[in-house]
Design a protein around this nucleic acid. Sequence first.
DNA 1: ATGACTTTCACGGAAAGA
Length: 259
Amino acid sequence: MRVVSWNVNSLRARLHRVEELLAQHQPDVVLLQETKCAPEQFPHEELAAMGYHAADASSGRWTGVAILARRELAIEDPTTELFGNPLASEARWVEATVSGIRFASVYVVNGRSLDHEMYFVKLEFLQAIADRAGDLREKGPMIIAGDMNVCPTDLDVWNPVAFEGHTHVSAPERKALTRVLESGGLVDAHRHRYGDDAVQYTWWDYRAGSFHKNQGLRIDLHLVSESLAGQIADVRILRDLRKGDKPSDHAPLELELTD
DNA sequence: ATGACTTTCACGGAAAGA
C-alpha cells in the first residue's frame, strides 16, 4: 500500500500537480493539507475523473484537509471531530478508515511566534491529537500524517542556530509532538526507515531560492502504529513535485507499506 | 540591511504562511 501526505497550499491552484502525482505514483491513499476550499469548492468531480474519491474537512481560507482513496477502496466512518480541538471551526483534522487502517490527515496550527496566543493554541491542538491517538491505539492500526509544523529534532532544520527562539523547534512543541507518538504508540516513519543519518526536508520557503539551496525543514510526517512499522518498505520525499510549474512550498511524502 | 514568494478574498492590498 502506498500512502502519500502532501500540503498542497491550495488544492484548486495545485490540481494539475495533484493530477501529476496521482498519475505517476498511483497512491492508494492521499492525505492532503491546506486545500483552502470552501465545502462547495472541493473538487470532487475532478478527482473522480482521476479515479479517486475523498472525505474532506473544508472551511475556506487558510486551512482544509482531506483523505483521498482510489475509487476501489471504501472510505469508512469519516469524521472531522477532534475532542479538545481549540480551533474546531477551522478544518484541520479529518479521519477515516481505509483497508482496515484508521487514517488522519492533519494540518497543525503554525503558532506564529513563541509569545503569540496562537503558539499556546498550537500546543493545545497537539495535545488534542495526542489524546485522540491514545483512544485510537486501543482500536487498531493507524496512520496520522500531515503538516505537523514541528521539526522533531535539530536534524530536521537546515540551520538550527537561525531558528533559535522561533516556532517549529521549541522544546514545548517537540515535547507535544513526542506525546503524540508516545500516546498513540507511533513511529515517525522517516526516522524509522533511515535512522539519524538522513537529513532531508519536506518544506522550503518560496523566497530567497531556499529550495535550490536546500534550506528547508522536515515538518511533514507520517506517524505510523508500531504494529505497522515492520511493514514500512520505504519512505520517499518526492522532491520533483517541489519543482516545475507552480509548485507547493511542500513536497509530497510517499510511504510504502508491504501487504 | 532588508526582503526576497504565493495564496485568498476581492479588486488593492492585508493577512497568513513557516
